[in-house]
């Protein structure tokens, strides 16, 4: 007995792609599960200033001229912090950034470029890390390029 369908002409449309799709799908799922993208994390880079005394003292190279130091004292204040730099006394990161920007402008007018100013954050022992990072970020946002931490006061 012959079926009528068997007499119809049948063309292959190309190679069988099913195994390829299987393998490709497995690779895709593997990459999606194993890959770590880490897109939500980044880093604030700090330099350690050259110290001639105390822990971590380093011998300065010949002809080395010390940078102008700008100390920012940070202390806890309630749930937040208080930052003191020269005559500035603020407890808010935005205010600190604005004030530091003005200070940087004064440094520029006095002939000191930002890269020759070493900002030193001097925190109290119990200052929270997140507040230090806020102060740090404010200094960077204001345009200072060299920011480091000092020992606690």
């Amino acid at each position: 007995m012959r079926f009528p369908a068997s007499r119809k002409i049948h063309y292959d449309s190309g190679p069988n792609l099913t195994p390829l799709v299987d393998v490709v799908m497995v690779i895709l799922i593997f990459l999606m599960l194993v890959g770590s993208f880490g897109a939500s994390e980044h880093f604030l880079t700090s330099n350690l200033p050259i110290k001639q005394a105390g822990t971590g003292q380093t011998h300065p190279p010949a002809g080395w001229v010390a940078d102008t130091a700008l100390e920012i004292r940070v202390d806890p204040r309630g749930a937040g912090f208080e930052a003191v730099a020269g005559r500035i006394r603020v407890n808010d990161a935005v205010q600190l950034e604005n004030q530091l920007r003005q200070m940087l402008e004064q440094f520029r007018k006095a002939g000191t470029p930002p890269e020759k100013v070493q900002v030193i954050i001097s925190p109290g022992k119990v200052v929270r890390y997140e507040h230090l990072i806020r102060v740090y970020e404010s200094a960077l946002s204001a345009g200072f390029t060299k920011v480091a931490f000092a020992t606690s006061h």
Binding site: S40, E41, F43, L44, T45, S46, N47, L48, G56, I133
Partner: peptide, 18 residues
């Protein structure tokens, strides 16, 4: 940080969340 300073490291990066 003091240990890093004693090891003469001058490139320290603080990991933060975006």
């Amino acid at each position: 940080l003091q240990t890093c300073a004693a090891a003469d490291l001058n490139n320290i990066n603080f990991a933060t969340a975006q």
